[in-house]
Design a binder for these strands. Structure first.
Length: 567
RNA sequence: GCGUCCGUAGCUCAACUGGAUAGAGCGUCGGCCUCCGGAGCCGAAGGUUGUGGGUUCGAGCCCCGCCGGACGCACCA
């Protein structure tokens, strides 16, 4: 089913044609900000008026004279400098919301041309615990994957683990000399971090130990059996630990191909770059220059003969292109890596790949002191502890607000609310802004938070528990009162909002929409009794409640957030 | 120094990609419970969108210059 804006767009295009105007681009037509300007508006007459040098208001009048809104609402009006304002009739609203209610996809059409999109996100490093810095990448990547899939794209999620690098020299050194087996069994991650830190500190003081670490690294890279085995153990232990976080967050990956997966390809990549004249020797290293971007080189082979992540990233793109036939690759990685990706993308273009590459950057998470979030001792905050604290805090709030819940219900709800709060605090914000992490704000039951939305869902669902039989959508819908109309108008925007998320990779526009939707619902809920209304009104209102709940559930699910039945 | 990003109510954030009188929440003040979950709703106060120019019918958004901040700039990822 077409969306309301699509229907109006079509009418507008017909009218433009009738007055002899061609537009190469689709003209803006969107819901109004202010109800006094109607329900939808377009600036087509002002945009086109400039092009054809006609007074915008007279052009607007000509367009309106040729614009049929039959079946949709009253004739549109010209206002201000040349806006064309549309109003939607209650009958049309009723018809549309009824249609939407009967649609499993809630009015969201799959895209006409599905693409194969690889989404690269989360990417923690082996032998280091995940920390707050991984939250945004993980949440954003997962949400974008869900949205793209819902829209019908072929999505491949890939966790590009940092499982290869110079830190393994120290880890292996520490494993051989400092390892405590008992701690490794009880808390493997902590033990891996400890041996790394101690080896690192020792290497700092003693050049001989540093040399020893380097030799361990070289042995690993050369395929030494024992070092290889230790490395594999570290990878396995770390992945098991990461999985606990991902399970708690409800995040899944199609693949977890770490950097090591591409090791064998690296010499060939550099050779290819040299053969094609893209890479050259510089200060002992092999580098690619792009002076338009930066005076710093893209180093594809280090002067010691080793390879860094630049080379791995090129190999990864080639793999994704050849093996998965990717049309697009989205990297959900923090803003500081901007230059790296510009260089990588530029090189990829020069290599001739027909790929849509996107660096989906995001800002940092700050502590209440407005500085990068750290623990009191100055460490980065472990993700696991953070998630568990969220669940704990949410469980306590739920227990206080609703003491009748069983312990089992309480902990299940606490998890949904706590994890939802963390995710929503992140995703409801514009991704580029640094945001201040605040337990009180994200767990607040007021304002634009997950608990507020989850509660709105719970309220809407609680009505249905009072029904004798399962709810069945009525055969007709009749809208009358203002709150019903306002809620319906907001509901009908959903099919336009979801595709818009991918325009700028901004899940926050969905979050904002859901919040406005919930606010409209509460207004409706306050002033329009449902169960005690006369039969026709009652059926209509039940349908609105049902659609609202499904929209909220679907919308939050696209953000990777669950809803409880009670809370 | 060069580059990227950011600067909006006291605080935390929006603003549908250039549209009409810049919106929410918290906090402050004032209203609303014989009624489906008040974890709610309605209202008031609060702004020269860091700053000075420019582009045009129209700028928080685009261009240029300042001020202030975060981050990145050769072999870590």
């Amino acid at each position: 089913m077409a969306t309301v804006t699509q229907i109006l767009q079509e009418r507008l295009q017909n009218a433009l044609q009738a007055v002899g105007i061609k537009s190469d681009e689709p003209l803006q037509l969107a819901p109004t900000m202010d109800p006094r300007h109607g329900d939808y508006q377009t600036n087509a007459a002002m945009v086109m008026g400039k092009k054809v040098k006609e007074n915008p208001r007279t052009l607007a009048s000509r367009i309106v004279a040729n614009l049929s809104t039959k079946g949709i609402g009253p004739p549109p009006e010209v206002a201000g400098p040349g806006f064309i304002n549309f109003r939607i009739s209650p009958e049309f609203l009723a018809h549309r919301v009824h249609e939407l209610a009967l649609d499993k996809r809630l009015g969201v059409e799959p895209v006409a041309a599905p693409k194969t999109i690889v989404i690269d996100f989360s990417s923690p490093n082996i032998a280091k615990p995940m920390h707050v810095g991984h939250i945004r990448s993980t949440n954003l990547g997962d949400a974008l994957a869900r949205v793209a899939r819902f829209l019908g794209h072929q999505v491949i999620t890939d966790n590009h683990l940092g499982d290869w690098g110079t830190q393994f020299g120290k880890v292996i050194y520490g494993w051989k000399r400092l390892l405590n087996r008992a701690t490794l069994d009880s808390d493997p991650m902590e033990e891996l971090v400890r041996i790394y830190r101690e080896a690192d500190a020792a290497a700092e003081k003693d050049p001989e130990i540093l040399g020893e670490c380097r030799r361990e690294l070289v042995k690993l890279q050369e395929g030494d059996i024992e070092n290889r085995r230790i490395w594999q153990r570290c990878v396995d232990l770390s992945k098991a630990e990461f999985s606990k976080n991902y399970d708690l967050l409800g995040v899944r990956f199609d693949f977890q191909l770490g950097e090591s997966f591409y090791n064998a390809e690296l010499p060939g990549v550099v050779q290819e770059l040299q053969d094609r004249g893209l890479a050259e020797a510089s200060e002992g290293a092999i580098v690619v220059w792009d002076h338009e971007l930066s005076d710093d080189p893209f180093i594809v082979r280090k002067s010691d003969g080793g390879f860094g992540y630049a080379t791995t990233d090129v190999a990864t793109i080639e793999y994704r292109y050849r093996q998965w036939h990717a049309d697009a690759v989205w990297y959900v990685v923090g803003a500081p890596q901007n230059l790296h990706f510009q260089q990588l993308f530029s090189l990829t273009r020069r290599l001739g790949y027909d790929l849509d590459l996107q660096h989906i950057a995001f800002g940092s998470i700050l502590g209440e002191d407005r500085k990068l979030m750290r623990t009191r001792s100055g460490e980065s905050v472990p993700l696991r502890a953070l998630l568990e604290e969220a669940v704990g805090r949410a469980t306590a709030i739920v227990a206080e607000k609703n003491p009748e819940l069983s312990e089992r219900e309480r902990s299940a709800i606490g998890r949904i609310v706590g994890i939802g709060a963390i995710k929503y605090a992140d995703l409801s914000q514009h991704r580029m802004t640094d945001y201040v992490f605040s337990w009180d704000k994200m767990l607040s039951l007021q304002g634009n938070t997950a608990p507020y939305l989850q509660n709105a869902y719970v309220r809407s669902r609680s009505i249905f528990r009072k029904l004798d039989a399962a709810f069945v959508a009525p055969s007709s819908v009749e809208l009358g009162e203002e709150p019903e109309l306002a809620l319906t108008k907001k509901i009908l925007q959903f099919p336009d909002v979801v595709p818009a998320i991918l325009d700028g990779f901004k899940p926050n526009i969905l979050a904002n929409y859901l919040y406005e939707l919930a606010a409209q619902f509460h207004g409706f809920y306050e002033s329009c009794p449902v169960l005690s209304a006369e039969p026709v009104k009652r059926e209509t209102r039940l349908l609105l409640c049902d659609v609202f709940a499904r929209l909220l559930q679907t919308g939050l699910d696209l953000l990777g957030i669950q809803v409880p039945d009670k809370m």
